[in-house]
Amino acid sequence: MLIYVLTGAIKLLVVFVLLLLYALFMLWFERKALGFIQIRIGPKLVSSGLEGLLQPIADMLKTLWKEDIVPHRADKLVFWLAPVIGAMFPFAAAMAMPFGPPLKIGGSYFYLSVVHVNVGILYILAALGLTSYGVLSAGIASGGNKYSLISAQREVAQMVSYEVVMALALLNPILMAQSLDLYDIVAMQAHHLWFVFYQPVAFVVFLICMFATAAIVPFDLPEAEQELVAGFNTEYSAMKMGMFPFGQFVTILVMSSLMVIFFLGGWTGPIWNGHPWILGFIWYWIKVFFFVFLFIWSWGTFPRYRYDQLMNICWKILLPISVLNILWTGFALIIHIPMI
């Protein structure tokens, strides 16, 4: 019992530190990749030899020393709570995310995620769903600032709509693997083709929902700088403002890993499959970081959808397609169409 609690605590600490380091690295990577896409150089002065790799640390120190302004009309408690909620729940979601293939030690498996429950995917969806309270609270607590309020409204409508479609898209691999356990879903793909080949429609739907859930550029309506100043961020300053992108970066990582696990075979590779353990680990992180890069790629290249277009895409196109897709998957499973 004690050893169980102890390993859990150590895992929690390690994952937390790794996620913080990842978010710092992402700050640099985002600016560098966006610079590359827009034919600029990007940050380079801090640590000139390392292509500005220490820039996020300088940014963070600067953010820490900035004055923390709270608007006079703001709801003080919720105003303070909002960035905490916005950063906390993506971290909570990452607790169930696998950080690599399970290690086989002796007869038992050692899982590289802090919690391993048999409803892992539902847990991640629940935590990501609660994330929207961060932006919602920020908008409402900003003391009647109209940009913040409109931004919060958009965020909530977007989250609620796309969560439905995302769950429906994920239902297809779940039905095929007959499990809600992330490890079981990968194990299923180790013996067959990757689910992207059986479920191309669900793959595309999930790809779209991925951007919408993380509020990245074609769907970054809550933050739309050109119309809403900075949306829910408008009244925030200093460290409070810095916490929202932290949460967003972790959401990006979790969504990428979900994508890889559900549709691209997790830690199975096209060649050098499975053994030794480290190959699976490398395959997994190559795929995850490709999708993390895809987020930034879309950030730098796409224009933004209008609000009504966003809702039309979700409710009039993606939802009927997903429902039909589930009907087809269920039918195919009942008449036992053989899987390759």
Binding site: V119, L122, A126, A127, G129, Q153, V156, V160, E163
Partner: peptide, 18 residues
């Protein structure tokens, strides 16, 4: 447990807050 979080905490209260 997770349905409680997704449906009630995640969706219904969000609609109320909306």
């Amino acid at each position: 447990t997770v349905l409680q979080l997704i449906v009630y905490a995640g969706a219904i209260v969000v609609m109320i807050a909306f």
